[in-house]
Nucleic acid binder design. Sequence first.
DNA 1: TACGATCAGGAAATCGGATTCCTAGTTTCC
DNA 2: GGAAACTAGGAATCCGATTTCCTGATCGTA
Lengths: 343, 343
Amino acid sequence: MDRGAVVRITDVAALAGVSPSTVSKALNDTGSLRESTRARVREAAERLGFVPDASARSLSARRSFTVGLLSTDSAGRFSLPVVLGAENALVGGELSALLATARHDPVREQHHVRALVARRVDGIIVTGRTTEPREPIKVPMPVVYAFAPSSDADDASVVPDDALGMRLLVEHLVGLGRRRIAYVGGRAEQAASLVRYETLAAELAARDLAAVGEPLYGDWSEQWGRRAVDQILAGGPGSGRADGALPVDAIVFASDQLARGGCDRLRERGLRVPDDVAVTGYDDWDVMSLASRPPLTTVDMQLERLGQRAAELLIAAIEGDPARGVERLAPRLVVRASTLGDG
Amino acid sequence: MDRGAVVRITDVAALAGVSPSTVSKALNDTGSLRESTRARVREAAERLGFVPDASARSLSARRSFTVGLLSTDSAGRFSLPVVLGAENALVGGELSALLATARHDPVREQHHVRALVARRVDGIIVTGRTTEPREPIKVPMPVVYAFAPSSDADDASVVPDDALGMRLLVEHLVGLGRRRIAYVGGRAEQAASLVRYETLAAELAARDLAAVGEPLYGDWSEQWGRRAVDQILAGGPGSGRADGALPVDAIVFASDQLARGGCDRLRERGLRVPDDVAVTGYDDWDVMSLASRPPLTTVDMQLERLGQRAAELLIAAIEGDPARGVERLAPRLVVRASTLGDG
DNA sequence: TACGATCAGGAAATCGGATTCCTAGTTTCC
DNA sequence: GGAAACTAGGAATCCGATTTCCTGATCGTA
């Protein structure tokens, strides 16, 4: 399209009958100019569709008004909302977002970091796929880590408060009178699986309760959720129908996917959720938590807000007020029919 | 953090004992320099960690080496893979990707377009949430539309070949001996629902067959998938168990979500998939198609490749070789147990 | 009336590289 | 041995906007 049509400041100046510097002052509300002059310049700029060249502006401002969004993975289910939340918050600050996905490849990541440095981004937000701490990146501008914290405690990180999330679930379940609670995690070596169990155990202990049986670990699939239910029920007397002596009255799953599988299997075995067994998930991933039968009580980590918060911290750092350490963002308990019946 | 640590070309020049222009030539392999000089400069640049300022480079090159990824929605299930595919392909071309999500807000979109123009991006890739044609954007640089084509046929667009996708499904089903095929769509007013039915009908007609009953439209939820199954079975003799006279021997769903719901309901009604009724989905969205019981035969639109292709077209356009019109990208048939049993 | 203060706006320097143009040396060749 | 042809590298210009000076005009006040 009209390639040559790029309007420069001199074009506006010519049309308005002033000098380029006057145009700059008029459009940026600086310097001292008669209001009539400003208006005339504005009108000329408007008429020509003048949009100042960001490269030139960056060059003299020594700022790019751009931040990098560096995602360790390919912006999957967890890092994507974070990225979107951040992008959203950045727009408000007149900043643009450069997307860089490393796809778990250190070489790619290095390449991206270099590119971001070359672009003199004002700052970088680093996100990951898991909550595992990660090696910090070395760059000459502020960095905020989101979801996956930096392993260097001096860096600024924002992570979901998993412990609080689990506490909310326990409060909810115990408040409903559930006492025999079992736990089903995902992959055993991942922090999300482990931390959630530890908090669960601690919270139960604080109420003179204990989890039923050992925590069960597998993977993050619905299939494992189903199998885990089988294992739990096999552990109690009368594996099938309730004779009033089910081994559990609630199962806490470490993800919505697991919970959904669990609900399916409970139903298939003739048990009612939540009447016989209450079920909770984690993540509030709508296609799982809402499509589950019944819909899941779960914890929303508020990942978009997490990204937004990371952006706020980054903007503050850019403006000379850097944060340090890990900030934990409170999640939100979402109560649905898997614990409350039709309530 | 070492904020002041930005190394300029003059620093490298000083260390190497040459002039800035020589440094530029040495690092860009231009001009005529002794190899020993180039090496000396390279070493100096290396030692100082010199990364040329992209703004300055853009300014004189009159190119930003950046492209905009403008997503109409907030990078959801469909536009996200497209965006990722594009970003991935751009990296290869030494281009950076500016992410801009409009979230269905025309004001936001306009804002983003302005920002992209200000940054003098070399080109823009526009993606949408649906395959509905959209109003083109007016900018002075090349644009490629992905997933949602431009309503102006002179623009370059890349879309999934939905007709072909449905043809592959019909070929597959008919090849398996299925003859009584019903169709369940999503929202009635959306192109995806309609086009898929039309192609289905046309392909069946070409084989002297016809769809069973009218196409059913609802929304895109699993719940609707379940209900649609009820409607279909109610239409035939003996709504429940098979007496050998089920009204259908296959159901084509317009999405994996619908199909998954359909499978669940068929199973709940005691019917076997695929023995009694074969089921197909659309999208190959893993959390649906793989988690379904049985896993779904479906169509993979190859959205990442779509984004990649859009990036290729854009790069070509930037290099002066623009494409015109709509390019349809062939999807891939993914055969799983919902049509083939354990095969 | 005159002189300092204020104001409007322009000229020029600046940001950091890329590129064009030049100028000393060095070769080459007759 | 001298002119033409290269070479290597430096000086200067440019990209487009911002910003700092600076100047001429207007204003206020003694």
